[in-house]
Structures are given as C-alpha cells and as structure tokens.
Design a protein around this nucleic acid. Structure first.
Length: 283
DNA sequence: ACACGACCCTGTTCGC
DNA sequence: TGCGAACAGGGTCGTG
C-alpha cells in the first residue's frame, strides 16, 4: 500500500499521540509478520517512553527512552489504527483484537495504537537507536528524495550505464529511497519519459528533470494526506485524497492529462507490476 | 554487477 | 450466485 507519502502521513498522525507518552502495555498477538518479531518484544516496549517519531524511506522509526528504536514497515496492507478519546471511538470495550490486529500499543493516557496487516508483508524490529542506519533493512537505502541528499548529479550518475528500464531503476530503493509503483508512474509521466526507456539511455537533461518531478509529486501527495486505494487510511481514519490527482496510475483507457496531448493511458506489465503511461507524450 | 523471476500471504475484484 | 484466476501499493532471495 504505502509509499513514502502514505508512510509520512501515518508518521504525522502517530506523532501527536505517541511522542512524549509511555507505552503502558504492549500486546503482541503473533510471533511473526513477514519475519519473526524481535525477542521479548512486548517486554522491551512496555514501560518505554516514546522520544520521537522519525521516518526513513518507507520505514517509521519510533525512538524509545530505552535507547532502542522500533522500526515499522507497513508492507502492502499494514495500517496503524488510533483509538482514543480524541478520535471519537469508544475505549470502554475490552481490547478485543479484530482480525489481523497483530500488535497493540496502549499508551499511558489510554490511547490505543493497533498495527493491523491482513497480508502480513509488514515488519517490525527493535534495534539500538545509534545503529538504525546500519540495520539490514535500512543500510542499502539510497538518499531520501525530499532531503538535500538527492541531487541531479547523483541521479544521473546512478542511472548512467544501466540497461534496465527507467521504471525499474526508480523502483530500486538503492537508487532513491521511498518511491513505489504509483509515484514512479506519476513522476515519469510528468517528465514525459517512457517507463520502457533504458535508464542509461536518457539524456542528462531528461534524467536531471526527474529530481524536481520526484520532489513535486511526493510533496503534493503528502500535502493531500497520501493516496487512498482500497482501504488505506491515514492513522486518524481519514482518507487521503491524492488518488484524485493521479494523471496515469489506474487510468487505463482514459484520456492523458497532459495539456494538449490527445493520448490515451495504457497499462503494461514491467517486472511483474502494472505500469501506466501515455505512449503519446512519454517518449 | 546486473537483470529477472519466484516467492512471501490474504483479500478483493473480475470473468465465465 | 458461485468459483477460480488475476491482481494488489512492499521487499528479499536465488538464478543466469
């Protein structure tokens, strides 16, 4: 489900209810998600104060007073559901876990945060806070696209010589962190670049144009609260609405939204995933 | 090093 | 209406 804008939206939703608060009770309902959960996870979380919520790529980082950081990945279907007095949901009932409620954190003010993940492609791990960047899941990630570390020279250098379609290159988290299927499609459309074009065969100028497009698309999506496909929601239960701004994603057969272009959006499959693009204006 | 496919798991949607 | 196939936003791993 979640690409960088969705994860950032979830982080922003969680921060006000978690930061500064103590995890009063941690309930872990199964031994694994995608991988085994850390040893004694519930004990290590219970009693810890949340110092701050960060994000790296599609990972939420919960820094704890115990000098450990809880690393959370939402996978495809993972959701963080907040229930508390401010959300209008009832807390009177005993914490009956709904289907796929795998981890429940009850904060010291009674707010409950539930990690629900039907497909279980999500992950959680605990790691010493000073070694988060060296964690196996994070160590090979490329630069954050919204930080200063992604610049045009870097991206051109990384795409140079690559024989893979630019679509696949941008999905590669070692090149740029946080892009997923949706936003790569949208970025390529805005740049007028065909997803099938070999990464190494882009002119310097066109490759460079990807950088501001990546920033713009991600910024706009975060501003819109992410994209809601299927049942994805923000942490507060609200729907994101960036999906209405999609120019190609999920729009097979519909008119291209590039001004002056009379093309029609087409769907192809690249490395097993759907790619949407306009053959008329993306070359 | 790179490129590609299989795989992980469940739920929803689509076609017959 | 029922049923299987296809598909879904993630990432890892093994192969050639």
């Amino acid at each position: 489900m979640p690409e960088l804008p969705e994860v950032e939206t979830v982080r922003r939703g969680l921060a006000p209810v978690m930061e500064g608060r103590v995890i009063a009770v941690a309930q872990v309902n199964r031994p694994d998600l995608r991988w085994p959960l850390p040893e004694r996870m519930a004990e290590r979380l219970t009693g810890a104060r949340v110092i701050g919520l960060g994000r790296r790529s599609k990972y939420i980082l919960v820094a704890l007073s115990t000098a450990e950081t809880l690393i959370i990945h939402l996978g495809m279907s993972g959701r963080m559901i907040i229930a508390g007095k401010t959300t209008g949901q009832f807390l009177h009932a005993a914490p009956v876990a709904a289907k796929h409620d795998h981890v429940i954190l009850e904060m010291d003010d009674g707010t409950r945060i539930t990690f629900n993940d039907a497909r279980r492609f999500g992950a959680m791990d605990l790691c010493p806070s000073d070694q988060v960047e060296r964690h196996r899941l994070l160590q090979d990630l490329g630069p954050e696209p919204l930080g200063n570390s992604l610049d045009e020279d870097y991206l051109c250098a990384r795409l140079k010589g690559r024989n893979t379609p630019v679509k696949a290159a941008l999905l590669d988290q070692r090149v740029v962190a946080g892009l997923g299927n949706i936003y790569v499609c949208e970025v390529l459309h805005r740049c007028g670049i065909s997803p099938r074009r070999k990464a190494g065969r882009l002119s310097q100028r066109r490759a460079a144009s990807l950088v501001p497009a990546i920033r713009t698309v991600l910024d706009e999506a975060i501003l819109a609260g992410g994209s809601s496909l299927r049942d994805y929601r923000q942490a507060d239960g609200e729907l994101g609405y960036f999906q209405h701004a999609f120019r190609v994603y999920g729009r097979e057969g519909q008119a291209c939204r590039t001004p002056g272009c009379d093309g029609q959006v087409r769907r192809i499959v690249q490395s097993g995933r759907s790619t949407y693009y306009c053959p008329a204006c993306q070359t």
